[in-house]
Amino acid sequence: MTETVELPVSREHGLELLREMLRIRCFEDRCYRLYGETKIRGFLHLYNGEEAVAVGAMRSLRPTDAVVSTYREHGHAIVRGIPMPAVMAELFGKQTGCSRGRGGSMHLFDASRRFYGGNAIVAGGLPIAVGLALAQKLLRQNDITTCFFGDGAVAEGEFHESLNLASLWKLPVLFLCENNLYAMGTALDQAQAETDITTKARAYRMAAQPVDGMDVLAVETMVSRAVDEVRTGRGPILLEMRTYRFRAHSMFDPQLYRDKAEVAQWERKGPIITLTTRLKALGLMSEDDYERCEREANAEVDAAVQFAEASPWESVADLERFVYAGPVA
């Protein structure tokens, strides 16, 4: 079971967490509409329901820490500080996008924020995270690498190889598994003989704990502790964030594999509802506060969409640019 954490929270802190989650939620809801309007194409994986993980986790990281992410990474990117207009422009495929229109939804990058990308091969980012941490260790930087991945990734060999290597070499990696219970349409218990992901980490002598991924305060506390521990250099840690994806896997998913009742049940304990209920019960916020935060978030999304709309396309003459960093004779 996840550890129950009853944390003191101030109005200011609580509202900040809420604002960040609403920034993601409003961004994702707008993306859903923009996909219908064909402004965004390709694969689009939305993060609704999992906002507490990105928001709670990213707060403990330093600007010099490295972040490796997945193809469901809009939330990670935005909370890490990539400007929302650059993210939206990337989804539009524009030159001003954070990958200059070459990556799209699944491949957001930002070197200045040490954001090493959405990786669209499940578990493909884990070995890279191990290498980034190896560099941090050998260069004696006091930085760590945080690596997001989903429950689907634990079926891949790269997950097992990477956990072993990180633990064997005592590397400063924080593995954050976003367990939303489904790898596309395959439920965890349909794919794994052992469904407790922390057990797998412990097989590699790695400290591991489950966390209620719907409770942003719990995520924040557990990640903060884990980050401090990883930063001491004693080795990697895995946290299993138990969460749920409210929307379809991608825009091409009729969701035949799960009941609407199951989705509704998880929505009732969603991360935004959980936090607002707690803050209201403590008398720390009102419905007006919520509406103001939502209005602000939507205004930011509006501005991002306007920026993306107005941005130029990359010149076709630059099609082959960036394939090599060095000269091509």
Binding site: P127, V130, G131, L132, A135, L139, E158, E161, L165
Partner: peptide, 17 residues
């Protein structure tokens, strides 16, 4: 673990080694 150590090479290169 070819995939892990080749990938770790990529990460280490990204990280300045």
């Amino acid at each position: 673990s070819e995939s892990a150590f080749v990938g770790a090479g990529i990460g280490a290169a990204l990280g300045g080694l």
